[in-house]
Computed example of a mutant assay.
Amino acid sequence: MHQSKHSTTTQIQVPELTLKKGSKVLYMTHLALGDYVYQGAFLKALSKQYPDVQIDVWIDDCRNKKKSWHSGRNSTLQQWLAKENHLNTIYPIASSNEHREQLIADAKNQQYDFIVFVATTRAPAYLKVAQAINANATIVGTEPKNLLSRLFYRNQYKSLSTTIALSELATSQHISDFYNHIFSRLFAVSLDEQQRSREILVTNSLGEQGKQQINAWRNAKNLSNGPTIFINHISTNEKRDWQLSQLTELTAKLTEKSPNTLFVLNAPPHKFDEVSNWCAQQTNIAVEAFSATKDFFELPSVMQACDLVISVETAIMHIASSLSLPQIALIRESASSWRPLKANSVLEGKKRVDNIAASEVVVAAENILKLA
């Protein structure tokens, strides 16, 4: 009798795109800071796997009309991405259609081998730009979201090497699952969940400046040993905001538990005066208004010097995740796929963030800071 030998083989994932030494890749997407926390982790992993490949990033969102927040987002994103040594050229958000045409002309000169666009909205606009940059490149991109658009643009999409179905996004438990699917499929780059937040590197000098700022605020208010809590209650949509009345209740109850607590209240530049005025009216709590107005890295340097971050559903909670800071995230139930991966506590409100009671946040903060 002969014994049969069973050999086991390990399945090796074969990427759909074959990158070679010297290949040029243009990655196009509508980036915000929160988006880059996750997509940036995959771009870094791609660079590590293919160190001899040029990776450029197009962050223009292909809108016909400029948005009021474009300038601020452009500035902060470029400041962060400029520090990413594995990225070559960053094409900014276009200030006008003429500016976009110039960006396209600049990109044409690169003669990209591969163009990948990841767009959950305006996908056909990205396809048009990608083809204008280099119609002979291997182009891969997301399909339009709705069926009518897919039918309307089906002829244009026939020219693509392959497409990415947005149905993958709908079935993802977290937004990073969607990016993991894309990078795994196209480049055989896959990351475990805890690797999917791009780390923000704060220099020693900036880190020291952040500590000095916190100490200066604490000394000015005669606060001895006690926690410093960074709070961000404002987003770009009122459904994701927390109310000032809730902020008042939260800070009062935590001050009662720990009288030497300093609260740093973050505000976007256009809201700073309003937030600063509110802070000035508070007589029973120690609170300072803050806004990063000079440089993006002011923000993580101050956050890093705090003991806890409490943030509504906006970029701040993802930056806290990048910095691995103790955090309470306040999000809508419908946005659970955008929860920060490393948060100590994620509280969800039905339809609106302000449906999360201040008392819930107090309990979570007491547990994290061990004030209970």
Rank of each mutant, 00 (worst) to 15 (best):
I12S: 10
E168Y: 06
F290E: 04
D295G: 01
Y27I: 15
M28L: 07
Y50P: 01
R63N: 04
L17V: 00
E101V: 07
R73N: 14
A45L: 04
F297D: 01
R352E: 15
T29P: 06
N355G: 06
G40D: 05
K24A: 11
R122D: 12
A105M: 13
Q246G: 13
P268K: 12
P268D: 07
A82V: 02
T120D: 09
D61M: 10
A292H: 03
V346T: 13
S336R: 14
K24Q: 12
S258F: 00
Q282N: 08
I104T: 15
K65Y: 07
L166Q: 15
L299H: 05
N266M: 05
Q3G: 04
I316F: 00
L19Q: 07
S149C: 02
E193Y: 03
T236A: 08
T10L: 12
S359L: 12
I356G: 03
L206G: 00
L26Q: 08
E84M: 11
S311W: 06
S336Q: 14
S75F: 04
H99S: 14
G349Q: 14
M317Q: 01
L26Y: 14
R218A: 04
T203M: 03
K370A: 15
G141N: 07
Q39W: 07
S71V: 12
G22H: 08
V140K: 05
L81N: 07
S47Y: 09
S197Y: 01
N367M: 09
Q243P: 02
Q131W: 05
N155H: 09
F152K: 15
C62M: 14
T283Y: 03
A41G: 05
S75H: 05
V287E: 00
S336L: 09
T142Y: 00
P259W: 11
Q304A: 08
E168L: 06
S47L: 06
I104Y: 10
Q281F: 03
I139F: 12
N225V: 06
R73S: 09
S322T: 01
V202M: 03
Q131D: 09
I90Q: 02
T251L: 08
S159I: 12
N97P: 08
N355P: 04
S96M: 06
C279I: 04
N88E: 13
F117W: 10
V346F: 10
L247D: 06
S359V: 12
V302E: 01
N266R: 02
L299Y: 06
T121W: 11
A123H: 09
G34M: 00
Q209N: 13
E288H: 13
V346W: 00
N232P: 02
S301N: 06
A372H: 07
W80K: 01
N85F: 05
P51C: 02
L147K: 15
K66H: 07
S334F: 08
V353K: 08
F297T: 00
V309H: 05
V287P: 00
S311V: 10
Q173S: 15
S190P: 02
A82D: 12
A130R: 04
M28F: 10
A372W: 03
S245P: 02
G34K: 00
A220R: 11
I319N: 01
F290S: 03
H181F: 03
L17N: 03
E366V: 00
L371E: 09
H6A: 09
R198S: 09
